[in-house]
Amino acid sequence: MTDTAVIILVLAIFVTILFGVVVWAHRRRIPVHQLPTGQEVISTRTRRRPAPTAPVPAEPTEPRRPWAKGRRFPVPKIGRSRPEIPRAMPTADPRLTGPVLLEAAWQQSVYHGARTAGRFRVAIRVATARGRSHAYEGTAGQDVAGVAWNEDRRAVFAVVADGLGSKADSGQIAREVVDQTLDLAERLQPNDDPTAMIHHVVRAIEQTAAHQGLDGATTLVIAEIRPDAHGAVVSTWGIGDSEAWLLQDGAWRVLHHERRSDAENVTRHLPGHCDVRTNSARVQPGTVVTIASDGFATALATRGNSPVAQELAARWRKPPSPTDFLNQVNFDDSRFNDDRAAVSVWIR
């Protein structure tokens, strides 16, 4: 026998002995109980073996940004904490091209868009929702909102009209007003006066209502956001109790409102009134311009003690997702039952 063969034999014996020791150490011991004859056997196990513990994944080393390129949703940590529902993935805002019109007739609607012109960048959100009053009565909501981009003026036009609930055709009138305003605003030339355009809309809607025999009326608020060297100039025009607001550094500032000293639900409207109230402000990037019907806007306040105003000031530092914006405009409070329409523009 050669030396090599001896070594192999010794190693084989050693491995065999080692294997036998390991098997002996891990042998399964079955408990045996001595039972009297006739006694029922329920179980031969003294206790249940614990279920194998699930492997715990290592702490994620990367930040929770599932939408980031090339990354996957993190696996919920089973057994250690509650599984977390992934947050809604933000959607890139499409470029605002043609005019957009939303109405609160029967459903909730939301639009999101963006526009860039050199250093001037805006994110746009539009939302409309039928109020609880109309929903309960089974009637159509009467608020309308829209937005348009004017290439020649390099400006965003936002429009909101709130049809008067006391007249049956107010929703149709509101739609006509917003439609005509967007159509004209989109084609306005750089040196044109928007006030003249609005007077034209007022006259046109008077004629439309008369010719078609419509029994309706609406408020109107318009904002133009136009870039300048330091940010943008925001101009507003209003007839009635729809409102225009700025959100700057967490504080609300009103540009147009017609809140009354009494509590009467009476407002200026068109057709009927043609005196347009105007205002303007030079604003810096970071400002949010909001125009809205009173169903939403009366929850805002300049003193900062309104719960809705405070909440939105915190949440609107950046443009919310479209569905978040719709939910925020359509906030739930039993004291606010009117239709809602709002356009917000984030100046970036």
Binding site: H257, E264, A301
Partner: peptide, 16 residues
């Protein structure tokens, strides 16, 4: 309408 206009009306949010 203008006779009942309250310039300071936007200072606080209101319910009717």
């Amino acid at each position: 309408m203008t006779t009942s206009y309250s310039p300071d009306g936007a200072q606080q949010s209101r319910v009717r």
